[in-house]
Structures are given as structure tokens and as C-alpha cells.
Simulated scan of single mutants.
Amino acid sequence: MSSAALTDLDGLPLLASLSHTHRAALAGISTREDFDPGTRLFEQGTSADRCWILLKGCAVVDSDAPGHGRMAVQSVGPGELLGWSWLLPPHRWHFGATVVSPTTAVVVDASELRKLADADPVLGYRLSLILVEALVSRLQATRIRLIDLHHNPGGH
């Protein structure tokens, strides 16, 4: 990964709790990629082998709803983490995701990230906190959406 991408990681509030050395290690197992709208990043049930940190653009997380097809669950935008299923066995996606606007992201190799976290407990702990914080934020957004849907059933 180029030093420009390391600069991208150094500037992300999401990774502020990581040392520069840890961000450099993360950059070493990552690539910076651009995605066009409509690009399918991953499918529910397939192998979770990477995660994305969006630098610009937007992706929509979706779920297969029997009898209804794909249903949008949440949008993920700049500075946010996309994809957590790589962390826990069996390392399969619980959702799917599609890019909906021109997007640039840091794409992290999940297998290598697990190795880094296992080898460095401080990094592993900090990554766990980042993931828990992202998960809590996502759960709060889902809760708000469910409350809104309950109070405005015909509005969505």
C-alpha cells in the first residue's frame, strides 16, 4: 500500500485509537480501491475474507428476505467500517453489500488482519474496541429505524 493510503488511515477518526505503527501494519495488508455504483462487494453466506473502510462514497448493506428479495438494512459512508463477519468463525457474510455511489475504500485482507491481531494482543484489543463501537452505532441506527417504521408504517 502506498504512503498516501497510510496517510488516509492516519487521518481516520475510526482508527484514532491505533498507534501509527498499528496503522502502518494495517496499511501493509490493505489496498486502496475505487468502486463504481452497482458493484456488489459481497453476498450473504459467502466467505468473509476482507473488510472495507470507506474513504468516500456509499454502500448499502442488505439482507435476503424470503419472499421479498434483497432488503436494504443500512447505508455505510465515509469513515465507516463495512464488513465484520471476517472476525468470527465460520467467517461467512451475514449480509450483502452493494456500492451505490462512486466509492473509494481501503480494502483490508481479513486473514492477515486476524494474524496481526493474534500476534499483537494490544492491536487485537484495540481492533475489538473499534468493532464493538461500530457495532453499537449500527445497532442504535437500526433501533431508530425500527422505531420510525413502527410509528410510520406506511411512510417507508
Rank of each mutant, 00 (worst) to 15 (best):
D8C: 13
V61R: 08
L87D: 08
P90H: 03
C58R: 09
A110K: 03
S19A: 10
W86H: 09
K56R: 15
G77H: 10
V132Q: 04
H150C: 09
A24G: 06
G45A: 10
A24D: 07
D34H: 01
H91V: 06
V99A: 00
F42W: 07
Q140S: 07
A141R: 12
R126F: 07
T39Y: 01
A72T: 14
R145K: 11
G11D: 11
F95V: 04
V99I: 13
A48E: 01
S19P: 11
Q44A: 14
S19R: 10
V132T: 05
A117R: 02
D109H: 05
G83P: 03
L6S: 05
P66Q: 15
T104V: 12
G11C: 12
A16W: 05
V73P: 03
D34V: 00
V76W: 00
G77N: 13
R92C: 09
F35E: 01
A119N: 14
L14S: 00
V61S: 00
L116S: 08
T104Y: 01
L87S: 14
A141Q: 13
L55F: 01
L15F: 03
L26W: 08
G155D: 15
R92H: 11
G11S: 10
A4G: 09
T31F: 02
K56Q: 05
G155C: 15
Q44D: 07
Q140W: 08
E80H: 06
D8M: 06
M1V: 12
Q74D: 14
A97R: 05
T31I: 13
D34Q: 03
P66W: 07
S85P: 02
R138F: 08
S3V: 12
A141Y: 04
G77L: 13
L127H: 03
G79E: 03
D118M: 11
G45F: 14
A117V: 03
D49K: 13
I29K: 02
N152T: 15
S75D: 15
